[in-house]
Amino acid sequence: MSNYLLIESRDPFEYGDTRYMYSLAGDLAGKGNEVTLFLIQNGVLTTRSGVKDNPLDSLPKGARSVKVLADEFSLRERGISQSSLSGGVKVSNVDNLVDLLVQEGTKAVWH
């Protein structure tokens, strides 16, 4: 089993293909991998509670869940307050992203 760091910089409003990363995250977690989905740039536009047809809702729950992090600067840049975040989304930052990147054996995927 591997550690996956999936970094999603895109959103489902501009791109028709963004659900790919969410379903991939779920599939990888379903196989027993440790999966972090790190949302950054417009990728954080799915984090507001109330987003319609939100791909975050498709992520598996429970033991094989995907850890969802959102870049604090990208949130602040877009006026997304921490109190308005969907459940399960945790605020992070690029310092933490670097910590995840330098873990030996982590498979980092930018999209």
């Binding site: 790919y20 379903s23 991939l24 599939d27 990888l28 196989k31 991998n33 498979k107 995927v109």
Partner: peptide, 17 residues
Amino acid sequence: SRSGLADLFDGHDAIWH
């Protein structure tokens, strides 16, 4: 298949997307 991508990723050490 899309559902086979997780296996394909698992079969590689690095994913350059």
